[in-house]
Write a protein that binds this DNA or RNA. Structure first.
Lengths: 158, 158
DNA sequence: CGCTTTTTATTAGCCTATTGAAATTTCGCA
DNA sequence: TGCGAAATTTCAATAGGCTAATAAAAAGCG
């Protein structure tokens, strides 16, 4: 078997493990995987608009409206009309939202970090190099479909 | 930033790239990502039951029933009652299904293989080692939630 | 200034994915 | 023979996702 195939098999194992674990973790927190991802995106230092969140997650604006609707209904995020551009909404995580995030940590984080840090130094370095290389191979050329850097939509929190 | 965090960021880039690319590719083929995965699982040498497919994909049997319904409606798979145990159904890909798979190749495959094979030998080896290590870290301890090895449900094709 | 275009968000209508619980059929065995 | 277990399907409900249409505000521009 070619090494490219071997690496694909390993990649699929990674994808499958994270997907299954993410589902499990989400339902333990009473949320869905997508809802957790929205909260994670919102958890950063920036205040985001629905459009910006949608772009980061690669879904349409209409989809993001419904996702935000559900999170608002659960009290995990809140909408606030922008002062400077009244077409826009600012979406932010509430305290309850942050609490929910704390109970539903990153799907990868738990499982991965402690095992990683137990590895010898050289192996950690190798893994970082390899993962960054693979990520580069995979997401290069993807910027058209998903404008990750939509700086016009970023605003620093006050 | 700790190396564990750096590697998590790279992993998320990998996950995001493959997810977005998978959606894109699926809709180009007129299928959904999940439907493609079902076809891939069925494409192997074994004839599988709905239960076995569900176990491999980590979804419930009820979900698998509806997925198979849709694929049957499209003529991509067919059901056949098992002769030896008439409670069971055997699901197999049709010729049309194989053709659809050929038009909708593995989400990862396209993008990845040629770039990978252009890398120098040492780097290929490093990536394989690192990915297998990471996959091992992530999917260890997962066998309870998703019985990948459900040998009772496998049957060799005649 | 007033009109048109663009941008942002939402609504409406549709389909797919997913699940748990209940129903159906068949098997295996005491 | 009869009964519990197994495999699948059906049912009802929720969630995620899309496009197209709409509403509202901002930006351009003659």
């Amino acid at each position: 078997m070619k090494r490219s195939e071997i690496s694909l098999v390993a990649l699929r194992r990674i994808l499958r493990a994270t997907e299954l674990y993410g589902r499990e973790l989400a339902r333990a927190a009473g949320l869905t995987p997508v809802q957790i991802r929205v909260l994670q995106v919102l958890d950063g230092p920036d205040i985001l608009t629905p459009k910006a969140i949608a772009a980061r997650m690669g879904v349409s604006q209409a989809t993001m409206t419904t996702l935000i609707d559900r999170l608002v209904a659960k009290g995990l995020v809140e909408r606030q009309r922008s002062e400077t551009d009244r077409r826009q909404m600012n979406v932010r995580v509430t305290e309850a939202g942050r609490a929910a995030l704390a109970r539903a940590p990153d799907p990868l984080h738990d499982r991965y970090v402690s095992a990683f840090e137990a590895l010898p130094d050289w192996e950690q370095a190798m893994i970082v190099a390899a993962l960054e290389r693979v990520a580069g191979l995979l997401d290069a050329g993807h910027l058209d479909a998903s404008p990750v850097l939509d700086l016009g939509d970023l605003r620093k929190s006050p």
